[in-house]
């Protein structure tokens, strides 16, 4: 099966869901990139382009949601969550309004656009808003299913999507998306690897490499970063006593931080965070950048072995 970007899954989901549900979709001049254009072409009366004005987009989204209509608002992660942070915090978070901020082009896999567009802090800032649900789907199957799930959920959601086409990991015929549930994909007692988004595929590659060496890891798909599925995290930390977190995000404030916050209070466990180590990105191809920052199977294998050596 060909690789598919999760932003494409998002656009397809919106266009399909528009037939069943009443909601509006907004964009800030990036509808081709975020793929909201698929919805816009089909339901032009419910699509609202705000031009390059993300702060107003979020404010308008809040106003629409205040009348009872759910809204999806999209741009690149940098601008949807970064530029409009305060509007999200006050007009969407505090009000608990039904706005779904679906942000594409997150992380370094934006690629050639470089540091100004590679937002690796979005989960950190969105996670800090009280009541905000933060999700990061792994592939086409999961992203497509997640969009309907967040539409049915009444309240603010931040959904992280990618630019880069990624392998389809889950079988659409059997896959069921359950919001708030971390899903173990492999079982192994040597180390628990919590990951989300594009890193799920790479964590599964690491699983195979390690298995060949006789090391068994549990890979847990933590698509909902907030609220964290504490029960599953604690269960696997207790089982393995060694934890690695993997994400295309800063090691500050993302899943790595969320897991450390939980474990340090409830079950002190050694944790290695694989992520962007408090630096800005650079231009390059998506795959090159993931390799540059150690966000690949080799990097995960290294982190697991470090844990085992402790």
């Amino acid at each position: 099966m060909a690789d598919i970007a999760t932003r494409a899954s998002y656009g397809r989901a919106l266009a399909d869901l528009g037939e069943k549900y009443m909601f509006a979709v907004m964009d800030a001049d990036l509808s081709g990139s975020t793929q909201t254009k698929k919805f816009a072409d089909k339901f032009p009366e419910r699509f609202i382009n705000c031009g390059i004005a993300e702060q107003n987009m979020i404010g308008v989204a809040a106003g629409i949601a205040a009348t009872g209509m759910p809204v999806f608002a999209s741009s690149f992660a940098m601008f949807a969550s970064g530029r409009a942070y305060e509007q999200i915090r006050n007009s969407v978070g505090h009000t608990k309004l039904n706005v779904k901020i679906c942000a594409s082009h997150a992380g370094v896999t934006v690629g050639e656009d470089g540091a100004t567009h590679q937002f690796c802090e979005d989960i950190a800032i969105m996670r800090s808003i009280p009541g905000m649900v933060v999700i990061s789907p792994a592939d086409d199957t999961e992203a497509y299913a997640a969009i309907e799930a967040i539409l049915k959920y009444d309240g603010p959601v931040y959904c992280r999507l990618g630019r880069q086409a990624v392998p389809v990991v889950f079988d659409p015929a059997t896959y069921k998306f359950e919001l708030f549930k971390a899903v173990p994909l492999t079982q192994g007692d040597d180390c628990a690897v919590f990951a989300h988004g594009v890193m799920i595929d790479r964590a599964l590659q690491a699983y195979k490499l390690l298995k060949d060496e006789g090391i068994e890891i549990s890979v847990i798909n933590t698509h909902t970063v907030k609220p964290l599925d504490e029960q599953t995290v604690l269960e696997y930390a207790a089982k393995t006593r060694r934890v690695v977190t993997v994400e295309e995000h800063s090691v500050i404030g993302g899943l790595g931080s969320a897991v450390c916050e939980l474990l340090s209070e409830k079950l002190p466990t050694p944790v290695t965070r694989v992520g962007i180590n408090d630096v800005f990105g650079v231009s390059g191809k998506a795959g090159e950048l993931l390799d540059l920052f150690g966000l690949n199977a080799a990097g995960i294998v290294r982190a697991v072995k470090e844990q085992l050596a402790k």
Binding site: A24, E45, R46, I48, Q55, N56, I58, G59, V60, A61, A62, G63, I64, A65, A66, T67, M69, E86, Q87, N90, S91, H94, T95
Partner: peptide, 24 residues
């Protein structure tokens, strides 16, 4: 009808309410 306080945001929200009425 809308929580406000951070300047500028209420104006956007009012636009959203008006736009929603245009849609429905």
């Amino acid at each position: 009808d809308m929580s406000t306080g951070s300047l500028g945001q209420g104006f956007s929200a009012a636009c959203g309410m008006a736009k929603a009425a245009k849609i429905t």
